[in-house]
Every structure is written in structure tokens, then in C-alpha cells.
Amino acid sequence: MAFKLTINGTDHEVDVEPETPLLWVLRDTVGLTGTKFGCGIAQCGACTVHLDGQPVRSCSTAAASAVGREITTIEGLSPDSSHPLQRAWVEHTVPQCGYCQSGQIMSAAALLSRNPNPSDSEIDAAMAGNLCRCGTYSRIRAAIHRAAEIAES
């Protein structure tokens, strides 16, 4: 079935089964590979993208359900890696292997957009769905605080 998806402000005509997870449409059909496959069952958060600004696990979101909504992936978070979170991530050298970090940043971006100055426990609650096997959690927490500062200044 052919339908139109709006991804990072650009319309894409895709022809896939409507139940195809958004993740695979982004990666295999549209070619945006910054969004990662981790578990396929919404348990690791590596595939997190925004639908109308809300974080969703794209591995468990039917592509057709995103029709008419604004899809934002890591590639569309900022044109030049200038989002406060991306700057803070570099400043704190957060990523190790880096594979989960697109999802981490997208979850954190959704958090900051609704809560510009979150506490540690608010960060923990918002980020608990994002696994990092390398164990960069304390850096992520620090970088989210730093991003909040950058955004304020």
C-alpha cells in the first residue's frame, strides 16, 4: 500500500504493508539509518523517534499510523548538530559505541521540550526506557543537565 510520510519536514511516498514498523521504513525504505534497531519489542529505546514531538519506539509503531503526523528522527533534530543536547553530548563525550545514542538523544529531546530543567529523578524516569550497554548513564544524565543550561543561555 502506498502512503505519504512526513519525515524531518520532507514528504516521502512509501509503498509498504501498512503494519510495517516505522523503524524499517525509515531505515530500509527511506534510507535514514541514524535510527537504530535494537530489540524489536520496544524494550531498549534505540529506535526512538518523535511523532508530533512525542517520543515513540519506531520498532513497535506501524508506519501507517504516522500518516499525517510530523516524524522527526535524529537526522532532523538539528541541521548541523547544534541542538543543545548534541552539543552537550560532545562536551561530555557521552557516546562510547554510540549505537544507542540516537535513541537516547531523541528521548532526552522530548523530555527537555516538556520540562526544560529536569531533576535527576525526572531524567531517570524519562530515560529508563533507553538501554545503554556501554554504561554511559551518568554521562547522559550530566549532559542533559548541561543541555538544559545551554538552552537557557
Partner: peptide, 26 residues
Amino acid sequence: PRIEVPLKVNGSAQYAIDTQVEGMVY
């Protein structure tokens, strides 16, 4: 600072799973 970090904050770092080759199947 580890030099590849900037590539890992915008989705541009290429992992094996991101490989795209013309004519590729899965």
C-alpha cells in the same frame, strides 16, 4: 576527547547494520 564522538550524536556514524549497497537484498 575521543575523536569520533561528534559522528555519534547525529546519526551519521556508520555501523555494519547501516550498510547500503546498490542492488542489496536482506
